[in-house]
Amino acid sequence: MTGSEVPPIDLPDLDVSAIEAIEGVEPVRSVRTPIRLDYRYVPGRAAVTYLEAMAEKRILGQRDPDTGHVFVPPRGVNPASGRVLDEFVELPDRGHVGSFCITNVPIPGRDDLSLPYASCWIFLDGADIGFLGLVAGCDPDEVRLGMRVAAKWKPDDELTASAENIRWWEPTGEPDMPLDEIRGGRGA
């Protein structure tokens, strides 16, 4: 099929003529009307506790006493049931790659990243859900399902109450997780 074969639009007639007084006036195709709104975001009850622990290089999750599931980062509820959670548990700063994506698209505001980079679903040991994290410290081609990774923390004197304290995740060199223990999808 070639360009000339694209069928023409067979459209019902629309009366979109301008009112007589402005017929012939050159149309304005666009106007720039910048919008600026400032917001003061709140992290919320669960996230405040999580971020304060981050300043001490500790990772906190929340545990549902009914199901035993551990959620990290914590958001105050079990997302499956809506149950309000208030029990915190500390998790190790290591886990495995559940799935991953080699990305060639820059992230706005992350000029420190060279392309391509690996964004991964990371499952911390003892956690029941994963989160997206960046894996570096190795060639992106080496990133694989089940690879063991650990947090690469910022230097101690740069730590704040921020998730940015973990600059990225890097390989630990431990043996990969067995295929049937990899999280993030049945049999993946």
Partner: peptide, 8 residues
Amino acid sequence: PFQTSVNA
């Protein structure tokens, strides 16, 4: 805020 942006 409060989370890292990695997925572009």
